[in-house]
Amino acid sequence: MSFINYASREINCKIVYYGPGLCGKTTNLQFVYQKTAPDAKGKMISLATETERTLFFDFLPLALGEIRGFKTRFHLYTVPGQVFYDASRKLILKGVDGVVFVADSQEERMDANVESVENLRINLIEQGYDLDKIPYVVQYNKRDLPNILSVEELRRELNPTNVPEFEACATTGEGVFETLKAVAKLILFDLKKGK
């Protein structure tokens, strides 16, 4: 849940990037980190194995600026995508304000995508959240690769509720900020409604 501090006039929100192993969650954060002005970002932390697979989480704090005199901060987290790290994924979802599902557009990763969305839904329920009610966007990543499925096919399986969706290529940064902006917007509007 977001943290509102009237004393220091700050609002902090937590965004989690979810998705199957090697879908590009960490790459999304790395691109955001590279393209953000130094004064607007903190250090990016990656708790990864020696082969650069995420072990626990990546963390990137972003200070986007002020809205109505309140400093607005977003804390971006990724989960470890590999199936056997489920216990860690559950922990990272605690207190989440919005979720980005990063799908791997390659045909052979479709099963992994479907499994991961299901896993997201179940893990959210365990934390008391409903995927259909929280701020949620879907990103179809790796659109630059040759063996990809069409957006229509991906949508049918991964986005039946028609939440905002974006095509992306996280290595070049295409679609990365559009995705982040969309989920941030949904979170802020959720706050506006006062939940």
Binding site: Y6, L64, G65, I67, F70, F177, L188, K192
Partner: peptide, 18 residues
């Protein structure tokens, strides 16, 4: 009784952040 500052925010406010 919420003095919550976000009740009045607009699309533009949010766009300006980015």
């Amino acid at each position: 009784d919420s003095e919550f500052p976000f009740a009045e925010i607009t699309d533009d406010d949010i766009d300006n952040l980015f």
